[in-house]
Design a protein around this nucleic acid. Sequence first.
DNA 1: TACACTATTTATAACGATTACAATGTAAGA
DNA 2: TCTTACATTGTAATCGTTATAAATAGTGTA
Lengths: 147, 147
Amino acid sequence: MSEVQLKDALDALKSTGVRITPQRHAILEYMIHSTMHPTADDIYRALEKTFPNMSVATVYNNLRVFRKAGLVKELTYGDSSSRFDFVTHDHYHIICNDCGKIVDFHYPGLDEVEHLASHVTGFQVDYHRLEIYGTCQDCLGKTAKAQ
Amino acid sequence: MSEVQLKDALDALKSTGVRITPQRHAILEYMIHSTMHPTADDIYRALEKTFPNMSVATVYNNLRVFRKAGLVKELTYGDSSSRFDFVTHDHYHIICNDCGKIVDFHYPGLDEVEHLASHVTGFQVDYHRLEIYGTCQDCLGKTAKAQ
DNA sequence: TACACTATTTATAACGATTACAATGTAAGA
DNA sequence: TCTTACATTGTAATCGTTATAAATAGTGTA
């Protein structure tokens, strides 16, 4: 399943004339298999055993390449560092304000909001971004115990 | 109208035991009268004529004070620096990918999305964030001319 | 008014994420 | 093989933001 995703991603890259280096292969593979939404540093640290002298710059460079190819989305939240999300199908994120966990969920596209916004502001709409914030069950349980 | 907003904000601050310094007054006033969504640096540069030796730290400190008091929202987008938005009533933002302009628009709350997300993930939902991206009319006009 | 206490501002140094740059390495095509 | 273009590496630089310590100003009390 994720093997197919990896193969598709590599094919997509190759078809746009991007070389598949071992580092790129490893970064993509890591992103696809990772259920969380890693930061550049997460990726760097996860791969430094396999690539002892890979540079952080390489991670950033390639994340940019993947982003331009549409394979990866950059998530910018309040905290300092960006998180990166392998693009599978459209989904939204719900984020725990206690522990920072990010969980995916699906919802039919919010076309109506886009239409209204476009109508009211005169903008040509390209896309939107939606996130929900709250507290996950683990953290709810923890605070309940602590009392 | 905005005078009332300013007075309300100052009262709200005073009631929580925060001192109203000239700098705080000026920052709040600037934010209320500004139609755009300024960065900390925008505020700093706008006020350095009136307060020639105000520090950038003062701007950041007070934005944090205002944020904790619920007077101001911090908007974190992909670009480097945060933007700050004086909280009037609930509204969403539509953002131009060309020039970065941010325009407000209203839309009835997306309760349904929150409910579904809560149901599917088990989170206790607090709030959500939605932004729409596209191109504003000015920039649409410019590219049309350029062709 | 004088004093002590606390909040606030200021100036500057430090931090951390990200990017720029130059040098080196590596792959593909003639 | 030679050439050329692309990738990686290591490091320095950048930039937004925060921490810190000293100076300043406000508040309450005697």
